[in-house]
Design a protein around this nucleic acid. Structure first.
Lengths: 157, 157
DNA sequence: GAATACCCGACCTGACTGGTCCTATATTCT
DNA sequence: AGAATATAGGACCAGTCAGGTCGGGTATTC
């Protein structure tokens, strides 16, 4: 269904929230959960995962919580999603082994791989920091320009 | 997990196959299923769905089968996927109602919506015909240029 | 009228998402 | 010291859905 999981959603929300804090501040899972109305235990797990993979730094005990371990501008949506949901696989073909069952005659692998890379490129080029400007709707601006992917107007559609 | 369903996969495979046929030829579900090693009954359903939604024209009886109802260049991957899997929803937020539970303070909706549109734009700009060049690996070329994207974000259908 | 092929609904099953619960560990405050 | 607060992490459960099967029905050709 080509859909993001809630966990990834929650992760992005939390990261963006943490990115909005001033320098020395931190936020606990509980705070974030209450603020955004997400189930605490679930969010806690997501945060743990993110901490374990180096996105967050955690502090135990009273007044503890999480803070970003990296600059918000250096955390891409792709990384976050991958950290939480595992690798993005557009189609099972090029997941694990190089070939699917119908390897010999499968006619859509190459095109799909390109779409796959396109999507990854898109996600890789959006950072938590990018997401922080609330309504900077650059209606046709930078978000769509994927560096390698030069948006030169082609025809149709 | 941000993954395409097998049905969509099969649909694309079948469409691409049909696109490769010469003018008056058609192919039955059985033929395609055998050729690409996909379960016939499942493929049959996919093809029926595509036929019902105007992508394919079907013919009953002996020597019957399917053929494209539209030019391959006029069928986008997005349309196909939507026809088979239903609408793409990156996150449940902006699926049905305009607001999710945490509407008031949800801080990732806008950025996600943009990603969403980016992906749709990508898919909208690849046609079955585009997928037919077997190995035209334009290494960083046109596939990534999201032309319509700037203009109208992959509307309709 | 037999064979072929599309049409379509019902049904089953295994995986996975979303979520809870419980316990352990670390830190701070009184 | 001990209570309170937070993270860490494993076990577990329920609902949903993708993937696939089956069976009956209709149209067309030979």
């Amino acid at each position: 269904m080509l859909k993001l999981t809630k966990k990834a959603d929650y992760g992005l929300i939390a990261l963006k929230h943490l990115a909005s804090l001033e320098a020395p501040e931190s936020a606990s899972a509980k705070e974030i959960a209450e603020l955004y109305q997400v189930p605490l235990p679930l969010l806690a797990k997501v945060l743990q995962k993110l901490a374990k993979q180096g996105f967050l730094r955690s502090e135990h005990g009273t007044n503890g919580g999480y803070r970003l371990a990296r600059e918000a501008g250096k955390i891409s949506a792709l990384e976050v999603i991958r950290a939480i949901d595992g690798p993005i696989i557009l189609t099972s073909c090029f997941t694990d082994h190089g070939a699917c069952d119908q390897s010999t005659c499968c006619n859509v692998r190459e095109p799909l791989r390109k779409i796959h890379e396109g999507i990854q490129g898109l996600l890789a080029n959006i950072t938590i920091a990018d997401m922080s400007d609330d309504e900077t709707d650059n209606p046709d601006g930078r978000l769509y320009s994927l560096p390698g992917l030069t948006a030169q107007p082609a025809s149709t559609v």
